[in-house]
Write a protein that binds this DNA or RNA. Structure first.
Length: 573
RNA sequence: UCCCCGGUUGUGUAAUGGUAGCACGGCAGACUCUGGAUCUGCUUGUGGGGGUUCAAAUCCUCCCUGGGGAACCA
C-alpha cells in the first residue's frame, strides 16, 4: 500500500504506537489484523469503531486486514448475518478481497492442536457438569456479613487422567459417543490462579446442533478462548485488536499460543464505543425489534448500520465521526451530538436544497395577477456553486409552514404576522394584510398578503430590511409527500441506567417517530429514488425511504438543522 | 473478596519529564436571502496526599474513585 506511515511519522493513538514499536523492534516485520464478527446479529455503530481500527491500522502500515467470521457457536449463527455483515462493512468503505475466512474452517486444525496439548499433558477430558465446573472453579460467594470471597478452585477428580485415556476420550467425544454436556476438554493450567479465566478453561464442549456451515460434521465445538488465539495464529495475525472486556483473557490468549507453539499474535485492547441516548448491545437491540418498539433492525432510529443508512447517515459522516472520537482505554460515553454534527457537516456540503412544507397553510397574494405563474431561479446548493440552479413555480396561491405565521407573535418573532413583511425565499417580499379564520374551530385557514413586484427573486430594495425569510410552495404545483420526523429513541442520556424496578424499554420516547402525512414538496421531489437525500430548507436533512417507492414519496428526517428559534422559545417559556 | 484495567474542562481526545492544546456541546457577539451556514470571544480541567526532580498530567508511593472478569457465549 502506498500510503503507509513513513518510519518517523507520528502514530495517532496508542495502538498505532504499539504497532510502530513492534515494527521498529523487529517483533513483527509486517502488519496483519483481523475483524472477527460473530454472525449472530446486525452490525451497529459500535462495531464500526472496531473494524475501522482493524482495517485502518492495517492500511496505515501497509498491511492487510482479514475478515474472519468467528462462528463457533452453532446455536446462534446464520448465513443471513454473514451476508448482512459483509454488506455493512462494504457500505462504510472497507474491502477485504480474498481475505475472507471462517473459524469454522479451522475445526480440523483446532482439533489437531487440542490433541497436541493433550499429548503434552496440558489438556484433559473432564466429566464435571457445567454446574460442577463452575463450583470447582471457585466462584465468588458472599458470606453472612455480605462480604464476597473468592475461594481458590479445586481440581476436578478427572484432572489426572493419563494421556492415553484423554486421547481416547477426546476422540470418542468427537465421534459422538457421549451426550451433550457430558464431557468437556479442558486446558490444564492452575485451579488456584488468581485470574479466574486461567482456572482450567473449557476448550471444547459437546453440542449436537447443526452448524450453518459445517452441518452435522461436528458435535464438539471449540470455545472462544481456545479458538481465537489459534485462529489468529493460523492467519498470521500480528495484532489482534479487541475491546477491553478481553483484557483479562490476554494471559490465556498468550498461554495457548505458547503451548501450541504457533505464530505469536499479539492482542491489544481498546475501549468500546458508547453513545449517549443510545443502546449498543445486541440483546437490547434485539428486544427493541422483538417488542416492535421499532420497525425492525433497519428502523431509522436504530444504531445499526442498516438503521443509520436508512436514516440518511452517509459513510463519510460516520467515518468522520470515528476519526474524531479517538482511541483509548478509558471507558467513554460519546455525545450523540458529535455524530449529528458530523452528519450536518457532510450533508451541508453535499445535499441539494429543496423546499418542502410539513404542515401547509395557504397564503393568498391579493395583488397577484389572476392565473399568472412565474418561474423563478433557486440555488441548488449555496455551499457548492457547481450544483447550479433550478426553476421553481410561483403563483398567487402559495403554501407556507403553519409555524411561520402567528396571529399574535411573541417578542423576537420575525416571521409572518399581521402588518409584518417577510421574504419568500427566492420569491418576493410580501406583507401580511390579514388572515382567514374558521369561526367554528378558531383555526387560521389562510393568510392574506400583498407582494412587492420590485422584489422579484427575493432581492430587497435599498433600506428595506426584512428580518425573516420563509420557505413556500406554489399550491397548484406542489407534490404530496410523507415526512417522518425522528428524534432520539431514548430521552435519557444513559438508557441502560434505569432505576430498580423500571423496565428500560418503557423509557423509549413514543414520539421518537412522528409521521407527517400531509406534507408537500416542490415539483422536483416527484421523481426521487430511495436513498436520495436533500436539505429541506430551514427544516433539516431528509432521506428518501424505500417505503415510498412507487407511490407518494416518504422522507425520513436524518437530522434537523440547528434551530436557534427553538432555543429562544425555550428561553421564553 | 480476589484478579485485571482506567481516572486531563460538560463530553471525547492530545501533550511520551519542559507553554495543559484540539474538537463537540454550552454561552455571548458579528455577519447573512435558510433564525441555516460561516466567523470571533468566553467556557471553574490533570481525583487526593506524600515523594523524586531545576522542572511532574507524565516517574515512585499510599489513598479515593470508575469499569471489567469469575458462561460448556463471543
Amino acid at each position: 500500500m502506498s500510503d503507509s506511515l513513513p518510519a518517523g511519522a507520528p502514530a495517532s493513538d496508542f495502538i498505532r504506537e504499539a504497532v510502530k514499536a513492534d515494527l521498529a523492534s523487529g517483533r513483527f516485520s509486517s502488519v496483519r489484523t483481523r475483524f472477527p464478527p460473530e454472525p449472530n446479529g446486525w452490525l451497529h455503530i459500535g462495531h464500526t469503531k472496531a473494524f475501522t481500527i482493524d482495517f485502518g491500522v492495517a492500511q496505515d502500515f501497509g498491511g492487510v486486514c482479514n475478515l474472519r467470521f468467528d462462528d463457533t457457536n452453532p446455536e446462534k449463527e446464520d448465513q443471513s448475518y454473514v451476508d448482512a455483515i459483509k454488506r455493512d462493512i462494504r457500505w462504510l468503505g472497507f474491502e477485504w478481497g480474498q481475505n475472507e475466512f471462517y473459524a469454522s474452517d479451522y475445526y480440523e486444525y483446532l482439533y489437531d492442536l487440542a490433541v497436541k496439548l493433550i499429548r503434552k499433558g496440558k489438556a484433559y477430558v473432564d466429566d464435571l457438569s457445567d454446574e460442577e465446573t463452575r463450583e470447582y472453579r471457585g466462584t465468588a460467594v458472599p458470606d453472612k456479613n455480605n462480604i464476597t470471597h473468592t475461594p481458590p478452585g479445586r481440581n476436578s477428580p478427572w484432572r489426572e487422567r493419563s494421556v492415553e485415556e484423554n486421547l481416547d476420550l477426546f476422540a470418542r467425544m468427537r465421534a459422538g459417543e457421549f451426550a451433550d454436556g457430558a464431557k468437556t476438554l479442558r486446558a490444564k493450567i492452575d485451579m488456584a490462579h488468581p485470574n479466574l479465566v486461567m482456572r482450567d478453561p473449557v476448550m471444547y464442549r459437546i453440542r449436537r446442533e447443526p452448524h450453518y456451515r459445517t452441518g452435522d460434521a461436528w458435535c464438539i465445538y471449540p470455545m472462544y478462548d481456545f479458538q481465537h488465539p489459534l485462529s489468529d495464529a493460523k492467519e498470521g495475525i500480528t495484532h489482534s485488536l479487541c475491546s477491553l472486556e478481553y483484557e483479562i483473557h490476554r494471559p490465556l490468549y498468550d498461554w495457548f499460543i505458547r503451548e501450541c507453539d504457533v505464530f505469536p499474535s499479539r492482542q491489544i485492547e481498546f475501549a468500546r464505543l458508547n453513545i449517549t441516548h443510545t443502546v449498543l448491545s445486541k440483546r437490547w437491540l434485539l428486544r427493541l425489534v422483538k417488542d416492535k418498539v421499532v420497525r425492525g433492525w433497519d428502523d431509522p432510529r436504530m444504531p445499526t448500520l442498516a438503521g443509520l443508512r436508512r436514516r440518511g447517515y452517509t459513510p463519510e459522516a460516520v467515518r468522520d465521526f470515528l476519526s474524531r472520537i479517538g482511541i483509548a482505554k478509558t471507558d467513554s460515553m460519546v455525545d450523540v451530538q458529535l455524530l449529528e454534527h458530523c452528519l450536518r457537516e457532510d450533508l451541508n456540503r453535499r445535499a441539494p436544497r429543496v423546499m418542502a412544507v410539513l404542515r401547509p397553510l395557504p397564503l393568498i397574494l391579493e395583488n397577484w395577477p389572476e392565473g399568472q405563474v412565474d418561474w423563478l431561479d433557486a440555488v441548488n446548493n449555496p455551499e457548492d456553486p457547481g450544483a447550479g440552479t433550478r426553476k421553481i413555480p410561483f403563483s398567487g396561491r402559495l403554501l407556507i409552514e403553519r409555524d411561520d405565521f402567528m396571529e399574535t407573535p411573541p417578542p423576537k418573532y420575525f416571521r409572518l404576522y399581521p402588518g409584518n413583511s417577510v421574504r419568500l425565499r427566492y420569491g418576493f417580499i410580501v406583507t401580511c394584510t390579514g388572515f382567514d379564520k374558521d369561526p367554528a374551530t378558531g383555526q387560521v385557514t389562510a393568510v392574506r398578503c400583498t407582494y412587492n413586484p420590485d422584489t422579484r427573486g427575493g432581492n430587497a430594495p435599498d433600506n428595506s430590511k426584512v428580518r425573516g425569510t420563509i420557505h413556500w410552495l406554489s399550491e397548484a404545483h406542489a407534490v404530496p409527500i410523507e415526512a417522518r420526523l425522528y428524534e432520539r429513541l431514548f430521552p435519557s442520556e444513559r438508557p441502560m441506567d434505569v432505576p430498580p424496578g423500571v423496565d428500560w424499554i418503557s423509557t423509549v420516547d413514543p414520539k421518537s417517530e412522528e409521521i407527517v402525512p400531509g406534507a408537500m414538496g416542490e415539483p422536483a421531489l416527484a421523481g426521487v429514488k430511495p436513498g436520495d437525500f436533500y436539505q429541506f430548507e430551514r427544516l433539516g436533512y431528509f432521506c428518501c425511504d424505500p417505503d415510498g417507492a412507487g407511490g407518494k414519496p416518504v422522507f425520513n428526517r436524518s437530522v434537523s438543522l440547528k434551530d436557534s428559534w427553538a432555543k429562544i422559545e425555550k428561553k421564553n417559556a
